[in-house]
Design a protein around this nucleic acid. Structure first.
Ligand code: MN
Ligand code: MN
Ligand code: MN
Ligand code: MN
Lengths: 224, 224
DNA sequence: GTTTATATTTAGATTAATCTAAAAAGAAAT
DNA sequence: ATTTCTTTTTAGATTAATCTAAATATAAAC
C-alpha cells in the first residue's frame, strides 16, 4: 500500500486531461500530445501508467477520461497553479504574462501548508489573474459561463471576466490597453464577419481584432 | 552546443558537494551518500555524469571537488534556497523549522526573474532565518566565523548569529525559548565538560544542553 | 463502398537516476 | 607485513519518461 509521491509528469498529464475534458469535452491522444508538446507514442505510454494508477479510464483509440481520484488530483494541481499565478502578480508584482510559465513549475512542489498560507494571504480568492476559476480545496469549480466580447452588441457596456488566451505577447498587448478581468468596457462599433471592434476602456478607446475579442469573455452590465 | 536544463538531482549533488567542501574540507562518496540519502554506487554513477558535464573533478577513491562552473551552479542553488527560506518566514509566516524542506524543492524551479523579485522584496538580505549567509548573485559568500555558544565565558553577553542544527524538532524547541539569530543572550553559568548552561534571554532564563549549545554560534558583545 | 488521410498504438531504443551484490582499493589494526 | 575493516567502484538490473519508425485502426473524401 506504499504510494510514492506522484511525478511532475503525471501531474501535468492529469491536469491537461482535466482541462481538455472541460474545454473540448474529451481528451484524445493527439490533443494531449499537442498540449504537452510530446510525441503521440509518449502519450500512449503514459496513459498506460495513468491507468495502472487508477487515475484514468481508457478506451483504445477513443481517448481517456479521469476517474474520481484522477479528477481530484487534477483539480489540486490546477488550484496550486492558479493560486500561484495570482500570488505572483499580487504579492511579487510579476507581470501577468509571465506567471503562467512560473506557476507551471511551482505547482508541483508547494506543500499543502504553503498552499494554505498563500490562499489565506490572498483572502481565499475565486479567480486567477486571467479570470480562470480557482478550484476550492473540496474540488468545486465555479462554472459561470460568460459571453465572448466578440458577441457583445454595439453600444453595450460589460465587465471583462476572463482572458482565455495564454500567449505572453497577446497578454502583454491586452495589458497595455488596460484590458484585465474586472475592467469595465463599452463596445462602440463592430465590423461584420468577426472583424475588428472599437472599444471604450476608462477614458481611452482602442481597436481590437476579432481573434483577440473571441478570447475575451465578458459579463454585460444589464446582467448585474 | 545545446545545453539542456540541469536536473534537480544534479543541482542537489553540486549543492551537497559545495556544502561538504565548506564544512568538512572535502566531499567523499560516502559523505555524499549520507547527505543525499542514496546508496554509494548511485553517487559514483552521478559523479561520472557531473564530470562529463565539467562540474566536478574526480580522483578515483579520493572524492570530488567542484570546478569553477560547478561552484557557480552550487552557489546559485544555495542562494535560491536561503532566499526562499527567508521569504517563507518573512512574507508568509511559515515557522522556521518547516522552511528548509519547502525550500529544498522550490530552489530548483524558481526563475532568475522571481529570485530577483524575492531578493528585492526582502531588501537584498545577507542571511537566512538560521543565520546562514546568502551568496550574492556574483557568487560571494560572507565568511564570518562566530564562536560556539558552548565556548562563551560565563557572565558574558553575546548576540546569536547562526543556528547550525537543521532538525525541525530542535529548531522548534529553540524557537520556543526565543533563541533566534540577532537575539541577545547572557551566559550565566556553565557546567564543566560540555555540560548544560543557563542563559538569560530577554526577561527570562533557560537551561540548554551542551550538544545544542555547540550548534549555536554567537558574537560576544565586546566584539561590537 | 473504396480509397486516402489522420490518429493511435506497437516495437524497439535511449537517457537519467536509482538499486543490490560483489569485487577491488585504501586505511586501520594487530 | 599481514590481516581486517571500510570505502569505493564495477557489474548488472530496474523504473520513469521520452523518442523514431512502422503497423494498425478510425474517420474523411471521393
Ligand atoms: Mn506543470
Ligand atoms: Mn491563468
Ligand atoms: Mn533540493
Ligand atoms: Mn537555512
Amino acid at each position: 500500500m506504499e504510494s510514492r509521491p506522484v511525478s511532475q509528469a503525471v501531474e501535468d498529464y492529469v491536469k491537461a486531461i482535466c482541462l481538455l475534458e472541460q474545454q473540448e469535452g474529451k481528451a484524445t491522444t493527439k490533443a494531449l500530445a499537442v498540449a504537452l508538446d510530446v510525441a503521440a507514442p509518449s502519450v500512449t505510454a503514459m496513459i498506460k501508467r495513468l491507468h495502472a494508477m487508477r487515475l484514468v479510464r481508457h478506451t483504445r483509440y477513443r481517448g481517456v477520461a479521469l476517474t474520481p481520484s484522477g479528477r481530484r488530483m487534477a483539480l489540486e494541481v490546477i488550484r496550486h497553479h492558479r493560486l500561484l499565478e495570482l500570488y505572483l502578480v499580487e504579492a511579487l508584482g510579476l507581470p501577468w504574462d509571465q506567471v503562467h510559465e512560473e506557476a507551471e513549475r511551482l505547482e508541483h512542489v508547494i506543500s499543502e501548508e504553503l498552499e494554505e498560507r498563500i490562499a489565506e494571504r490572498l483572502g481565499h480568492p475565486v479567480a486567477d489573474p486571467h479570470g480562470d476559476p480557482i478550484p476550492t480545496k473540496g474540488g468545486e469549480v465555479d462554472q459561470s459561463a460568460y459571453l465572448p466580447l466578440s458577441e457583445l452588441n454595439p453600444g453595450t457596456a460589460a465587465v471583462i471576466k476572463r482572458v482565455a488566451d495564454q500567449a505572453p505577447a497577446k497578454l502583454r498587448y491586452l495589458g497595455d490597453l488596460g484590458l484585465f478581468p474586472e475592467v469595465r468596457v463599452t463596445l462602440l462599433e463592430k465590423a461584420p464577419f468577426g472583424g475588428p471592434m472599437s472599444l471604450e476602456v476608462g477614458e481611452t478607446r482602442c481597436t481590437l481584432g476579432g481573434d483577440l475579442a473571441r478570447q475575451i469573455y465578458v459579463l454585460p452590465v444589464e446582467s448585474l
